[in-house]
Protein backbone atom coordinates (compact mmCIF):
# COMPACT_ATOMS: atom_id res chain seq x y z
CA UNK A 1 0.00 0.00 0.00
CA UNK A 2 1.33 3.42 -0.88
CA UNK A 3 -1.08 5.96 0.60
CA UNK A 4 -4.77 6.43 1.15
CA UNK A 5 -5.33 7.97 -2.32
CA UNK A 6 -4.36 4.59 -3.80
CA UNK A 7 -7.90 3.24 -3.52
CA UNK A 8 -8.39 1.20 -6.71
CA UNK A 9 -10.16 -2.07 -5.86
CA UNK A 10 -11.05 -1.02 -2.31
CA UNK A 11 -14.24 -2.44 -0.79
CA UNK A 12 -16.96 -0.64 1.11
CA UNK A 13 -17.50 2.67 -0.68
CA UNK A 14 -21.11 2.05 -1.64
CA UNK A 15 -22.91 3.07 -4.82
CA UNK A 16 -21.67 5.64 -7.31
CA UNK A 17 -24.07 8.55 -7.10
CA UNK A 18 -24.53 9.98 -10.57
CA UNK A 19 -25.31 13.64 -11.15
CA UNK A 20 -27.63 14.66 -13.93
CA UNK A 21 -25.79 15.83 -17.03
CA UNK A 22 -26.20 19.55 -17.43
CA UNK A 23 -25.86 20.21 -13.71
CA UNK A 24 -23.58 23.17 -12.98
CA UNK A 25 -19.89 22.45 -13.64
CA UNK A 26 -19.12 23.75 -10.17
CA UNK A 27 -21.61 22.71 -7.52
CA UNK A 28 -20.60 25.60 -5.26
CA UNK A 29 -18.94 28.94 -6.01
CA UNK A 30 -15.99 28.10 -3.79
CA UNK A 31 -15.30 24.95 -5.84
CA UNK A 32 -14.72 27.16 -8.86
CA UNK A 33 -12.55 29.57 -6.85
CA UNK A 34 -10.51 26.65 -5.45
CA UNK A 35 -9.82 25.34 -8.94
CA UNK A 36 -8.93 28.78 -10.28
CA UNK A 37 -6.70 29.74 -7.32
CA UNK A 38 -4.87 26.42 -7.73
CA UNK A 39 -4.34 26.86 -11.49
CA UNK A 40 -3.27 30.50 -11.09
CA UNK A 41 -0.83 29.59 -8.30
CA UNK A 42 0.68 26.90 -10.51
CA UNK A 43 1.56 29.63 -12.99
CA UNK A 44 4.07 31.01 -10.47
CA UNK A 45 6.28 28.17 -11.65
CA UNK A 46 7.31 26.87 -8.24
CA UNK A 47 6.17 23.28 -8.84
CA UNK A 48 5.11 20.84 -11.53
CA UNK A 49 2.04 18.61 -11.85
CA UNK A 50 3.75 15.69 -10.11
CA UNK A 51 4.68 17.83 -7.12
CA UNK A 52 1.12 19.15 -6.86
CA UNK A 53 -0.41 15.65 -7.09
CA UNK A 54 1.93 14.44 -4.41
CA UNK A 55 1.01 17.39 -2.18
CA UNK A 56 -2.62 16.15 -2.23
CA UNK A 57 -1.53 12.59 -1.57
CA UNK A 58 0.53 13.73 1.41
CA UNK A 59 -2.49 15.09 3.22
CA UNK A 60 -2.83 12.95 6.32
CA UNK A 61 -5.05 9.88 5.79
CA UNK A 62 -7.56 11.48 8.15
CA UNK A 63 -7.68 14.75 6.16
CA UNK A 64 -7.63 13.01 2.77
CA UNK A 65 -10.64 10.93 3.77
CA UNK A 66 -12.74 13.66 5.39
CA UNK A 67 -11.97 16.47 2.94
CA UNK A 68 -14.17 16.93 -0.12
CA UNK A 69 -12.44 17.10 -3.51
CA UNK A 70 -11.73 20.82 -3.66
CA UNK A 71 -10.90 20.95 0.05
CA UNK A 72 -8.04 18.60 -0.80
CA UNK A 73 -6.96 20.95 -3.58
CA UNK A 74 -6.99 24.12 -1.52
CA UNK A 75 -5.41 22.53 1.56
CA UNK A 76 -2.61 20.89 -0.43
CA UNK A 77 -2.09 24.20 -2.21
CA UNK A 78 -1.64 26.01 1.11
CA UNK A 79 0.90 23.38 2.19
CA UNK A 80 2.76 23.66 -1.11
CA UNK A 81 2.89 27.47 -0.99
CA UNK A 82 4.58 27.26 2.42
CA UNK A 83 6.89 24.39 1.50
CA UNK A 84 8.14 26.24 -1.59
CA UNK A 85 8.68 29.44 0.38
CA UNK A 86 6.09 31.48 -1.50
CA UNK A 87 4.09 32.07 1.70
CA UNK A 88 5.01 31.84 5.37
CA UNK A 89 3.10 30.31 8.27
CA UNK A 90 2.47 33.91 9.41
CA UNK A 91 0.87 34.64 6.04
CA UNK A 92 -1.55 31.74 6.49
CA UNK A 93 -2.38 32.95 9.99
CA UNK A 94 -3.29 36.31 8.49
CA UNK A 95 -0.32 37.99 10.15
CA UNK A 96 1.86 38.41 7.07
CA UNK A 97 2.71 41.50 5.04
CA UNK A 98 0.53 42.67 2.16
CA UNK A 99 3.44 44.18 0.23
CA UNK A 100 3.98 43.03 -3.37
CA UNK A 101 5.71 39.66 -3.48
CA UNK A 102 9.01 39.10 -5.37
CA UNK A 103 7.15 36.58 -7.56
CA UNK A 104 4.33 39.02 -8.34
CA UNK A 105 5.63 39.70 -11.84
CA UNK A 106 4.90 36.04 -12.65
CA UNK A 107 1.23 36.33 -11.68
CA UNK A 108 -1.13 35.09 -14.39
CA UNK A 109 -3.21 37.92 -15.83
CA UNK A 110 -6.62 37.47 -17.43
CA UNK A 111 -5.33 38.18 -20.93
CA UNK A 112 -2.88 35.25 -20.90
CA UNK A 113 -5.34 32.67 -19.51
CA UNK A 114 -6.56 31.36 -22.90
CA UNK A 115 -3.00 31.01 -24.17
CA UNK A 116 -1.78 29.23 -21.03
CA UNK A 117 -4.66 26.74 -21.11
CA UNK A 118 -4.28 26.16 -24.85
CA UNK A 119 -0.55 25.55 -24.53
CA UNK A 120 -0.95 22.90 -21.83
CA UNK A 121 2.01 21.05 -20.39
CA UNK A 122 3.00 18.05 -22.46
CA UNK A 123 4.83 15.30 -20.55
CA UNK A 124 6.64 13.64 -23.44
CA UNK A 125 10.38 14.32 -23.63
CA UNK A 126 13.30 13.00 -25.65
CA UNK A 127 15.02 10.23 -23.71
CA UNK A 128 18.22 8.21 -23.86
CA UNK A 129 16.35 5.25 -22.39
CA UNK A 130 15.47 2.90 -25.23
CA UNK A 131 12.27 0.87 -25.04
CA UNK A 132 13.04 -2.66 -23.87
CA UNK A 133 9.52 -4.02 -24.41
CA UNK A 134 7.50 -4.43 -27.57
CA UNK A 135 3.74 -4.44 -28.09
CA UNK A 136 2.37 -7.85 -27.22
CA UNK A 137 5.17 -8.72 -24.82
CA UNK A 138 4.40 -10.20 -21.40
CA UNK A 139 5.59 -8.06 -18.48
CA UNK A 140 5.31 -8.08 -14.71
CA UNK A 141 4.92 -5.00 -12.50
CA UNK A 142 7.18 -4.23 -9.57
CA UNK A 143 6.22 -5.34 -6.09
CA UNK A 144 5.72 -3.60 -3.75
CA UNK A 145 4.28 -0.59 -5.59
CA UNK A 146 6.52 2.12 -4.19
CA UNK A 147 8.76 5.02 -5.08
CA UNK A 148 12.33 3.72 -5.40
CA UNK A 149 14.03 7.08 -4.74
CA UNK A 150 12.18 8.51 -1.75
CA UNK A 151 10.66 6.48 1.06
CA UNK A 152 6.91 7.03 0.91
CA UNK A 153 7.35 9.11 -2.24
CA UNK A 154 5.08 9.61 -5.21
CA UNK A 155 4.48 6.76 -7.65
CA UNK A 156 1.87 6.01 -10.31
CA UNK A 157 1.84 2.25 -9.92
CA UNK A 158 -1.34 1.52 -7.97
CA UNK A 159 -1.00 -1.17 -5.32
CA UNK A 160 -3.81 -3.23 -6.84
CA UNK A 161 -1.58 -3.81 -9.88
CA UNK A 162 1.68 -4.61 -8.07
CA UNK A 163 3.39 -7.89 -8.95
CA UNK A 164 0.85 -8.53 -11.71
CA UNK A 165 1.49 -10.08 -15.09
CA UNK A 166 0.13 -8.28 -18.14
CA UNK A 167 0.80 -7.63 -21.80
CA UNK A 168 2.03 -4.47 -23.51
CA UNK A 169 -0.76 -2.90 -25.54
CA UNK A 170 0.70 0.47 -26.61
CA UNK A 171 3.98 2.35 -26.44
CA UNK A 172 3.18 6.01 -25.72
CA UNK A 173 6.71 7.29 -26.33
CA UNK A 174 9.00 8.58 -23.58
CA UNK A 175 7.46 10.59 -20.74
CA UNK A 176 8.58 12.37 -17.57
CA UNK A 177 8.88 9.89 -14.67
CA UNK A 178 6.64 11.14 -11.84
CA UNK A 179 8.57 9.21 -9.18
CA UNK A 180 11.55 11.44 -9.93
CA UNK A 181 9.83 14.63 -11.03
CA UNK A 182 7.64 14.88 -7.91
CA UNK A 183 10.72 15.14 -5.72
CA UNK A 184 12.90 17.62 -7.57
CA UNK A 185 15.14 14.80 -8.81
CA UNK A 186 14.80 15.66 -12.49
CA UNK A 187 12.37 14.62 -15.20
CA UNK A 188 14.16 11.33 -15.96
CA UNK A 189 12.01 10.58 -19.03
CA UNK A 190 11.66 6.93 -20.00
CA UNK A 191 9.35 4.77 -22.14
CA UNK A 192 5.70 4.71 -21.09
CA UNK A 193 3.43 1.81 -22.01
CA UNK A 194 -0.24 0.95 -21.78
CA UNK A 195 -0.25 -2.51 -20.20
CA UNK A 196 -3.32 -4.76 -20.22
CA UNK A 197 -4.07 -7.07 -17.30
CA UNK A 198 -6.77 -9.74 -17.26
CA UNK A 199 -9.23 -8.94 -14.45
CA UNK A 200 -8.57 -12.45 -13.14
CA UNK A 201 -4.91 -11.50 -12.60
CA UNK A 202 -5.90 -8.59 -10.34
CA UNK A 203 -8.98 -9.65 -8.44
CA UNK A 204 -9.92 -12.68 -6.34
CA UNK A 205 -13.42 -12.69 -7.79
CA UNK A 206 -13.37 -10.97 -11.21
CA UNK A 207 -16.81 -10.17 -12.62
CA UNK A 208 -15.99 -11.86 -15.93
CA UNK A 209 -12.96 -13.87 -17.09
CA UNK A 210 -12.92 -11.80 -20.30
CA UNK A 211 -12.70 -8.38 -18.61
CA UNK A 212 -9.45 -6.41 -18.58
CA UNK A 213 -7.84 -3.42 -16.90
CA UNK A 214 -5.30 -1.25 -18.71
CA UNK A 215 -2.80 0.99 -16.90
CA UNK A 216 -0.18 3.41 -18.20
CA UNK A 217 3.11 2.27 -16.70
CA UNK A 218 6.70 3.46 -16.99
CA UNK A 219 9.42 1.07 -18.10
CA UNK A 220 11.09 1.07 -14.67
CA UNK A 221 7.84 -0.25 -13.14
CA UNK A 222 8.09 -3.34 -15.35
CA UNK A 223 10.23 -6.43 -15.82
CA UNK A 224 10.06 -9.07 -18.53
CA UNK A 225 8.24 -12.31 -17.72
Amino acid sequence: MTRVHDMGGRFGDGPVVREVEGDPVFEKDWHARALAVTLASGALGKWNIDVSRHARERLSPKDYTRFSYYEKWISALADLLVETGVLTLEDLKGEGRDAPHPLAQRAMTADVVPGVLAKGGPADRPSDVAPTFVVGQAVRTARPAANRFVDGGHTRLPSYAQGAEGRVLLLHGTHVLPDSSAHGLGEAPEPLYAVMFPATELWADAESPDDEVVLDLWQSYLEPV
Partner: peptide, 17 residues
Protein backbone atom coordinates in the same frame (compact mmCIF):
# COMPACT_ATOMS: atom_id res chain seq x y z
CA UNK B 1 -3.64 36.44 0.94
CA UNK B 2 -2.36 35.71 -2.57
CA UNK B 3 -4.21 38.64 -4.13
CA UNK B 4 -2.87 41.14 -1.60
CA UNK B 5 0.67 40.04 -2.43
CA UNK B 6 0.02 40.37 -6.15
CA UNK B 7 0.56 36.64 -6.71
CA UNK B 8 -2.82 36.04 -8.29
CA UNK B 9 -5.13 38.31 -10.24
CA UNK B 10 -8.85 37.96 -9.44
CA UNK B 11 -9.66 38.82 -13.07
CA UNK B 12 -7.58 35.82 -14.18
CA UNK B 13 -9.54 33.61 -11.75
CA UNK B 14 -12.80 34.83 -13.28
CA UNK B 15 -11.44 34.07 -16.75
CA UNK B 16 -10.38 30.55 -15.72
CA UNK B 17 -13.78 29.84 -14.22
Amino acid sequence: ILTRKGLIDPAALDELI
